[in-house]
């Protein structure tokens, strides 16, 4: 893939991302089947979810603890559409789910971004919690019952009948979405996001509209998270309030952190590692929480850059002792100060 990347046409159009997904789509069914293939399908949906979360957390530097809100919103949108019109095409549902989540996210971000840092994270958590509460209080959201039978969603004229069909369908959707996100990360918009993350005050001085970049990053992240949620809903056939819980919001950040957000592929690796280790560990530990928590603790303390930083760290250690704080974010004082400045500057 690295060889492919050197070809100018390929690297500009992100063709290698699509080729990679196509290769994975073909190879996996040869190696896995049944429930294992289904785990891979789930993992791929989480790959999209993690990459979408990384738009916010990794590229733009906004910590959201409420990604489950958009994940669940996608799932519920699909369920409601299916209830109203079972004949509707699954692709249309995905687009509608993405639009709904994107618009809600943009509106929410417009006011939530009056705060920054920790308060912003709490606000996103509040959003997810409000939606979770609403599923119990609003009659047509069916409370704990949720929705069933989403296997029947029609793709290209008929429902998906086998694990293999579901696999191809999920891979195709995730592949295209991740490719779009890859294009975004290489575009000027993606560069603006990273500029805002690194130094919002300087970005504003360079003429980047910080608030606008943050709001659009939030909307994009939400839209693709919603697609991931809808894919999961369709794969499992069930939508329940469990998809809106705080555990989901946390796990997706864990996925981003395991992989590392400094490279595009980081969250992809993280999501696969998270889903597979959860599946394998659930046989050993009764509850996977403790495992996810400990894994995250180890990563946060020992390898703050995630798995993608491993090669660099190893190489660096061989040459010299790595400079302290090289990969670490700036100290708290500086970060808070610049946040404040931007907040005042942009308002």
């Amino acid at each position: 893939m690295t060889v492919l990347e050197r070809l100018p046409l390929v690297s500009r159009s992100g063709l290698h991302v699509l080729i990679g997904f196509a290769a994975v789509a073909m190879v996996m069914p040869l190696l896995f089947s049944g429930s294992q293939l289904f785990t891979w399908t789930t993992a791929l949906a989480w790959v999209l979810f993690a990459t979408a979360t990384s738009v916010l957390f990794g590229w733009t530097g906004l910590l959201s603890f409420g990604q489950a809100a958009f994940f669940g919103m996608g799932a519920y949108t699909m369920a409601l559409l299916y209830e109203r019109d079972p004949e509707m095409s699954g692709f249309v549902m995905l687009v509608v789910a993405a639009l709904v989540a994107g618009v809600v996210a943009a509106l929410f971000a417009l006011f939530a971004l009056r705060t920054s840092g920790a308060e912003f994270a709490i606000l996103t958590l509040v959003l997810a919690q409000v939606l979770w509460l609403l599923t119990y209080r609003v009659d047509w959201l069916n409370g704990e019952e949720g929705f069933h039978g989403l296997f029947g969603v029609k793709i290209l004229g008929g429902p998906l009948t086998s694990d293999l069909q579901l696999w191809y369908y999920t891979t195709a959707v995730v592949g295209v979405c991740v490719w779009l996100l890859w294009l975004l990360s290489r575009s000027t918009a993606g560069q603006a996001m990273r500029a805002v993350r690194d130094d919002p005050w300087r970005a504003a001085a360079l003429g980047i509209r910080v608030r606008r970049v943050q709001v659009s990053a939030f909307a994009v992240s939400a839209a693709f998270s919603a697609v991931a949620g809808a894919l999961i809903a369709q794969g499992q056939g069930v939508v329940s309030p469990g998809m809106l819980t705080f555990a989901i919001s946390g796990e997706i950040l864990v996925a981003c952190l395991i992989g590392g957000t400094s490279k595009f592929i980081g969250p992809v690796i993280g999501a696969v590692v998270l889903i597979w280790s959860q599946t394998l560990m659930s046989n050993i530990f009764h509850e996977s929480n403790i495992f996810v928590g400990l894994l995250l603790l180890v990563i946060v303390i020992a390898l703050p850059g995630g798995f993608v930083s491993l090669p660099g760290r190893l190489a660096g250690r061989r040459r010299r002792r790595p400079a302290k704080g090289e990969s670490a974010p700036p100290p708290s004082g500086a970060a808070t100060a610049s946040d404040d400045l931007v907040e005042e500057g942009v308002r």
């Binding site: 864990v254 929480n289 403790i290 928590g293 995250l296 303390i301």
Partner: peptide, 26 residues
């Protein structure tokens, strides 16, 4: 984690939260 900044500490706290919940169940 203190030197790594507030975001990392925040995530560390979250990790600890999950681990403690798991511990309570065990």
């Amino acid at each position: 984690l203190y030197k790594a900044g507030p975001t990392v500490s925040f995530l560390g706290a979250f990790a600890l939260f999950l681990a403690l919940l798991g511990l309570a169940i065990v």
